[in-house]
Amino acid sequence: MRDALARAWARQAIALTTLVLLWEVCSRAGLIDPFYAPPPTVIAMTFYELFAGGTIWEHIAATFSAALLGLFGGLLIGSALGFAAAMVRPLADVLEPVMILLNAIPRVILAPLFIIWFGIDLGSKVALSLVLVAVLIFFSVYSGIREVDTRLVERVQTLGGGRATLLREVYVPSVTAWVMGSLKVAVGFAFTGAVVGEFVASSRGLGYLLSFAQSTYNAAQTLALIFIIMAFVLLLFSLAGRLERWLLHWRYA
């Protein structure tokens, strides 16, 4: 099992290295136009310059603030609404169609509207990120409660458990499992919201830098920024994975 995992890692590393080397050689040999795909070493230099200048941190901080605020706000609001809808039938009748609609459309189309409403600063980015996450979490919590294992509910009832016990022993743990299932997707959504928001209109953030790099046809800088965003999202993915393993330890024990 461990051997198989190690072999898979080795294969992936070899494939990646080969691809990067091939890219470098082809780009230097003029087989692909460096204007579109600058060689990896040039991207690495741009990467270095971005960090050496120091100003990149301000942009990273801006994007992170927006993404994390949106993530936590979305988790909070999505959970609260999902819980309320599952508990109060009339509320579900009103909320469910709205959420289904919001779920069906590409929610990033709300970005221009949020910029009109909340300005080009942090607020509009947080709002977009929050809406992306909240709709996802709403459905996790809503279906988590609606589709809770009725056998467990009855088991706890016949053991003498009331509403508070049911909530603590059955609903919260089973909803936690559902939410953890969508947490990684939520992290991705939170960054999508933040970066797209910045892309549309802003004066700070990785999305703003991306938009700037694109407007000057700077492919090296664009790629470097994409890699930075990827690195941060992967970092958060691994944190989310750890959180999941900790909260759902009974599943991995």
Partner: peptide, 30 residues
């Protein structure tokens, strides 16, 4: 009602609780 015990057909224990916690649950509720 608290003097009644119901053993179901399935063995749906709380998956997030250990054997000990599952058995203790009814006692804790009392």
């Amino acid at each position: 009602p608290r003097e009644m015990g119901f053993l179901f057909q399935d063995d749906a224990l709380l998956p997030w609780r250990t054997a000990r916690q599952n058995v203790a649950l009814g006692l804790r509720l009392r």
